[in-house]
Structures are given as structure tokens and as C-alpha cells.
Design a protein around this nucleic acid. Sequence first.
DNA 1: CCGCGGGCCTGAGAGC
DNA 2: TGCTCTCAGGCCCGCG
Length: 294
Amino acid sequence: MPELPEVETVRRGLQPSMEGAKILKAEARRKDLRFPFQKDFVARLEGQTVAGLGRRAKYLMADLASGDVLLMHLGMSGSFRVLKDDDNIAPGHFHYERNQDRTHDHVIFHMSSGAAIIFNDPRRFGYMKVIARNAIEDEPLLKGLGPEPLGNEFDAAMLARSCANKKTSLKAALLDQRVVAGLGNIYVCEALFRARLSPRRLAATLAMKKTGEPTEHAKRLVPAIHDVLNQAIQAGGSSLRDHRQTNGDLGYFQHSFQVYDREGEKCPTPGCGGTVKRFTQNGRSTFWCPKCQK
DNA sequence: CCGCGGGCCTGAGAGC
DNA sequence: TGCTCTCAGGCCCGCG
């Protein structure tokens, strides 16, 4: 599911009930998600105050008073729900939301703020891991992540440089978290459309040959990425299947998709007259307008 | 080192 | 109704 805008939406939703609150009880309701939970997973969380909740790429990172950091990844179908009144969901009593299937509620944090924070993930591609903050540089999950697309260091020059020697398509390069960290299939398609760049174009064409300076294309792509991510965050992310804000509301950026999931529709560019097409690149669907994306 | 395809899971929807 | 097939916001791993 979630790309940067969805993860950021979740972070903002969790923040009020997590930051400054203590984890009174942590429940891991099965032995694994994508990976087995660490043996001391629960022990390292219970009793800890959450000093801050941050985000790096598609990871949520809760800073604990102990000096540990809780890393959380939503995979494809992970979501968090905040229930304000913990009384209804005392351990062993799963009647807290009538008529809802709680089969995939895998982790629950009972917070001193009175909130219960529930992680639900049907496909279990998500995962959680507690690491020491002072070892964060060595964490394999985070090592090699490229720049934050909304951060200062991500600009046309940097994008051009990291694409310069790539042998792959621009679409695949933007999905590569080492190039830029946080984009996924939706926002790559949308950003390429907005920049009028073909997903099939070689990534290396974003840099001038020899000098490696950014082309006009690279200069167009960076603001396109900024815009689509910022607008999606504003809209609470995109809800296609699983994504929900932490209060249960849907995100609504899916209504603003120009090409993603719009195969066969008319290209939204005024005067273009093209049709949105779909094809497969590296095993993922690409949506684009061949007429105005070059 | 790099790029690609397979695999990890469940569930929704289409077609028969 | 139900079966089978495809597809889905991600990413690790092993292969060539």
C-alpha cells in the first residue's frame, strides 16, 4: 500500500497519542509479520516513553526514552488505527468495533494517553523492529536509502547524478529507494505524467553526457515529485484498498490521479487527446499517456 | 557492483 | 454459488 504520503499521513495521525506518552503494554498477537518478532520486542517497548515519532522514507520511527528506536514498515497492506478509549479493548476483549474483522490486528500498543494503537496488516508484508539509536547507521534496513524526496538535498543535480550511470528505465530508477527514498508505483506514475516524461526513457537521459549536469528534464521532474507528494499528503494519502487515516477516514488523493488506475481514459492534459495506457515494467503496472509523455 | 524475476501473503474482482 | 485466475501503495534475495 503505502508510499511516502500515506506513511506521513499515518505519522501525523499517530503523533498526538504517541508522543510524550508511555507504552503501558505492547501486544504482539502472532509470532511474526514479514519477519519473526525479536525475542525481546515487547520487553524493549513496555514502560518506554515515546519521545518523538518521525519518518524516514516509508519507515515510521518512534524514539524511545531508553535510547532504542522502534522501526515500523507498513508493507503493502499495513494500517494503524487509533482508538481513544482503551477501556473497550482490554486484552482478550476484542469487541471494540462490532462487525469488524479483527483477524489481522497483529500489534496493539496501549498508551498512557488512553489511546490504543492497533496495527492491522492482512498480507503481513509489514514489519517492526527495535534497534539502538546509536547503531542506526549500521541498520541494514535503512542503509543505502537515498535522499528524502521532500528534503533539501534532493534536487535536479543530485537526481541527475544518481541516474547518470543507470542502465534501467526512468520508472525503475525512481522506484529504486537508493535513488530517492519514499516513492512507490502510484506517485512515480503521477510524477512522470506531470513532468511529461516517458516511463520508458532511460534514466541516464536525465543527466547530460560527459558533464553529468542535470537536463531540463531533471529540472522538471523534481518539482513534479514535490507537487504530487505535497498534494497527496494534504489529501491524507490515497485510499485504493487498505489505506486509512488513523481515525478510520479514507484518504482522497485517488480522486486526483491523472493516470494511475485510469487505463483507457482520456488523457487529462488539455488539448492532448491521447488515451491513458498501461503496460508492465519490472513486474509492476505503469500508467501513462504515450502522446504527451516523451 | 547492477538489474531483473521470484517470492512472500491475503483478499477483491472478473470470468466461466 | 463457487471455482480459478489475475492483480494489488513493497522490498529482500538469489541469479546471471
